[in-house]
Each structure stands twice: as C-alpha cells, then as structure tokens.
C-alpha cells in the first residue's frame, strides 16, 4: 500500500514539475518565472526524498539539504535582481 502511494506521489510531483516548466517558458512576467523556478527546486527536493524512500537508502539525504541551499541562493539572487537591477554591488549606497 505504501509502495503504491509513494509511486503515485512521484508521478504527481513529476506532472506538477511539467506544469511548472510550462510556466517558466511561457510566464508573462519575470516574477512568474522566478516563482516557478523556486517551486521546481521544492519539487526536486520532494522527488529526491521519495526516491530515497523507494530505494530504501539514506545516501540521498545530504543531497536534499544541498538542493535546498542552492535553490535558496538562486531565489535570493533573482529577487535582488528584480528589486535592484544588479546582483553584486560594488559599494552599497546607504
């Protein structure tokens, strides 16, 4: 029973990632694309966790934290680009 539910959850996560990829390509504004990319990162974490349950191994658990940190840094960089127009400033002006 658990096996079937986990495989169903993997399928649903994959389908939702396809929808998010459609939003990244089509998205009317840049903010839509950024949020879709962040959600793809979250879905990637879910798929990695479900895969590690299916394969019954704890080798992927560090990768989950890694994807989380990298997705966070990417989202922060995009947010700063949208807010200030520059990612790495030479000198702050305040």
């Amino acid at each position: 029973m658990l096996e079937i539910i986990i495989r169903l959850a993997l399928l649903i996560c994959s389908i939702s990632m396809l929808g998010l990829i459609y939003r990244v390509i089509k998205g009317p504004s840049v903010a839509d694309r950024v949020i879709a990319l962040d959600a793809i990162g979250v879905n990637l974490i879910a798929i990695t966790a479900l895969t590690s349950v299916v394969l019954n191994s704890h080798a992927f658990l560090e990768i989950i934290l890694l994807i989380g940190i990298l997705a966070f840094i990417g989202t922060v960089a995009f947010a700063k680009y949208l807010e200030k127009g520059v990612i790495i400033e030479r000198e702050r002006n305040h």
Partner: peptide, 9 residues
C-alpha cells in the same frame, strides 16, 4: 556568493 549578494564587493 550569498555574502556577496547580501552585502557588496
């Protein structure tokens, strides 16, 4: 890089 984004060079 996170430090560079938050503060400046």
């Amino acid at each position: 890089v996170l430090l560079l984004i938050t503060y400046d060079i």
